[in-house]
Design a protein around this nucleic acid. Structure first.
Length: 243
DNA sequence: AATCATGACAACCGCCGAGAC
DNA sequence: GGTCTCGGCGGTTGTCATGAT
């Protein structure tokens, strides 16, 4: 069978921690060290859930925490890592000594998001807002893009289904840390230069009024087989490079 | 001075993977 | 092999501080 429950919720405090509770937790961990959060509250004389104790210690009481405002350098690191890792706050925190995932997450939501938006950058895609397509589902995203007439061509609309294959899940190593090699292999997005050239794998359906054409091919590789196929109904392009 | 809106951030909730049983 | 908890994570909510009206 499994283990017993971590705590009796009916007999635990919730909400803000008091100074006395903080001191009890600090004193206990100083003597006994971290670990076994389940039994810690009782041993330390705290009426708290083990999870709550862990969170309080990790995020606010640890002696190695760096409190105070984020520096510009830290800002840049967070933005850069977020462009690569997405909302993997623990991984981002792992590369910012003294900062916690919760702290970075809050900072992102209250400061950096707004900062990027004010610069016309989509905080989710890290691309200029005019080029961004809102992504609600990381795997399949139905959306519609209208393309204005160019060079006398007939105006048409694109019904686009995006399937992102290179998700952030395979970015981190299994140890839970991200190495410089990881960063190199998975590509960086930089602001202000062209080194962030990135390719997205897409299923692209083009609709021409009530009819549509199709072109299909493998999802990976060079797409050469797709290039050799004629357009037919409906249009399917399997690899599209955005820059 | 009172009220409301907004920002900042601490804390909770629910989910998931790994491991214990 | 199935069930269950633990530890950890990301998303969300609650609460307090501050500024605007």
């Amino acid at each position: 069978m499994g283990r017993s429950p971590c705590c009796e919720k009916a007999h635990t405090n919730k909400g803000a921690w008091t100074k006395e509770e903080d001191q009890l937790l600090i004193d206990y961990i100083r003597i006994h060290g971290e670990g076994c959060w389940r039994s810690l509250p009782k041993s330390a004389g705290l009426l708290r859930c083990g999870k709550s104790c862990r969170l309080r210690w990790i995020n606010y009481l640890r002696p190695d925490l760096k409190r105070g405002n984020f520096s510009d350098e830290e800002d840049q690191v967070i933005i850069k890592l977020h462009s690569l890792l997405g909302n993997k706050w623990s991984l981002i925190a792992g590369r910012l000594p003294g900062r916690t995932d919760n702290e970075i997450k809050n900072y992102w939501n209250t400061h950096i998001k707004r900062k990027l938006l004010s610069h016309g950058i989509d905080p989710q895609t890290h691309r200029p807002i005019k080029d961004s397509i809102a992504v609600t589902d990381p795997k399949t995203v139905p959306t519609t893009v209208t393309v204005p007439p160019q060079n006398g061509a007939v105006e048409y609309s694109l019904n686009v289904r995006l399937k992102t294959e290179n998700s952030s899940d395979n970015v981190a190593s299994t140890s839970g840390t991200t190495t410089d090699e990881d960063l190199r292999q998975n590509g960086d997005i930089y602001y202000g230069d062209n080194s962030g050239d990135r390719e997205l794998n897409l299923d692209l359906t083009l609709g021409f009024g009530s009819t549509s054409l199709v072109r299909s091919g493998p999802k990976s590789g060079t797409g050469s087989s797709a290039d050799s196929k004629p357009w037919r109904d409906p249009v399917m392009v399997t690899r599209l490079s955005l820059s």
